[in-house]
Design a protein around this nucleic acid. Structure first.
Length: 152
DNA sequence: GCCAACGTTGGC
DNA sequence: GCCAACGTTGGC
């Protein structure tokens, strides 16, 4: 099976690409959507490349690259009552939520904006720009990956 | 299993 | 801040 590609969203006020560049590696915890979880659990492989996307901000778009540094494992925040992501209904012996670790690769020279992504040709059915999409972890085809990167 | 109510996401 | 679109919850 070949390398896969992904996109993860983050609100820069919460966790920005600059922050990832500083800490180098981060547990991608707090994902509380089953489909997004399943992509991490069933799809992500070590070394897979990921677009880092800034959402809910002045200029939404892809701002950098990172990679999968650790395969899916139980998200510790679900068991932490102090955490915003605490889930009292998640059994210890059968954790509901998972996370992966991501490693910083680089920042793009510029933001490839959502507007550009919506208007560009050659992306086919792109999960990010599907109507009403709200997934915070989503797959990117190799064609989409290459076409998007070529816009940098 | 249905579905209304509610909460969240995220662009604008 | 608004609100469309969606996912989840829980009563029945």
């Amino acid at each position: 099976m070949g390398m896969k590609h992904w996109l993860i969203k983050s609100e820069p006020d919460e966790f920005s690409i600059d922050r990832l560049a500083k800490v180098k590696r981060e547990a991608w915890s707090g994902v509380r959507n089953y489909q997004a979880r399943n992509y991490m659990r069933d799809g992500m492989q070590l070394g897979d490349e990921i677009f880092f996307y800034h959402s809910n901000c002045e200029l939404p778009g892809i701002v950098g690259l990172c990679t999968v540094a650790k395969l899916a494992y139980p998200d510790p925040t679900q068991f932490d009552p102090e955490s915003d992501y605490f889930d009292s209904a998640s059994p210890r012996d059968k954790p509901r939520w998972l996370c992966v670790d991501v490693a910083y690769k680089c920042k793009l020279k510029r933001t490839i904006t959502l507007g550009e992504l919506k208007s560009m040709d050659g992306l086919g059915d792109f999960v990010l720009t599907r109507r009403g999409n709200r997934l915070s972890v989503l797959p990117v085809t190799v064609t989409q990956w290459n076409n998007i990167l070529s816009m940098e």
